[in-house]
C-alpha cells in the first residue's frame, strides 16, 4: 500500500500564524491507497480540525473532473465527518495533481474556513 500525504498551511482566509512560526504542520493530508485497479483517496484532518460534511470536500483534478469525498460516518447532526472521507480514482495512481478544497472547522472555536491545496 502506498500513501502520499500532502497539505498544510494554504488555508484561504486562514488567520496568520500568530506564533510567528515559518512552517506549519499539515492541516489536511491526502493519502492514496491502491485497491486493485482503483485508488482510494483519503483525507485526514489535523487533530484540531473537523471536516465539514455539509459541503463535501472536492478534488479538482487537472483536466477538469471533480472528485467529491464521502463517508457514512458522521456526527449525529451530520455536520462533520467522524471518519476520514474517501473518494475513488478508477485507475492505479501514486500521485495526484489538481486542487483539493476542504471546508474545515476549528474544534472548540466554532468557526469555519476553507482550505485550497494545490497538489
Amino acid at each position: 500500500m502506498l500513501a502520499v500525504a500532502a497539505g498544510g498551511g494554504l488555508a484561504c482566509g486562514a488567520a496568520p500564524d500568530r506564533a510567528g512560526r515559518g512552517a506549519r504542520p499539515p492541516e489536511v493530508e491526502v493519502a492514496l491507497v491502491r485497491s486493485g485497479a482503483r485508488t482510494r483517496v483519503v483525507l485526514i484532518a489535523a487533530p484540531n480540525l473537523e471536516i465539514n460534511a455539509q459541503v463535501a470536500p472536492a478534488l479538482e483534478l487537472a483536466g477538469g473532473p471533480v472528485l467529491r469525498f464521502a463517508s457514512p460516518a458522521l456526527t449525529p447532526d451530520s455536520a462533520y465527518f467522524t471518519a476520514p472521507p474517501v473518494a475513488w480514482l478508477d485507475h492505479p495512481a501514486d500521485t495526484v495533481h489538481g486542487t483539493l478544497r476542504v471546508g474545515v472547522c476549528e474544534r472548540g472555536q466554532e468557526v469555519c474556513r476553507r482550505i485550497a491545496i494545490p497538489l
Partner: peptide
C-alpha cells in the same frame, strides 16, 4: 510522504518536502 508548506508574506509558497518511511498503517496525522 509528508509535505510542509511554508508561507512567506504575500509571495509564493515555498515547498519543503520530507520523506518518511513508516511501518504499519500510518494514515493518521
Amino acid at each position: 510522504f509528508g509535505f510542509t508548506l511554508t508561507r512567506s508574506g504575500q509571495g509564493p509558497f515555498a515547498l519543503a518536502a520530507a520523506i518518511v518511511l513508516a511501518g504499519g498503517g500510518a494514515l493518521a496525522l
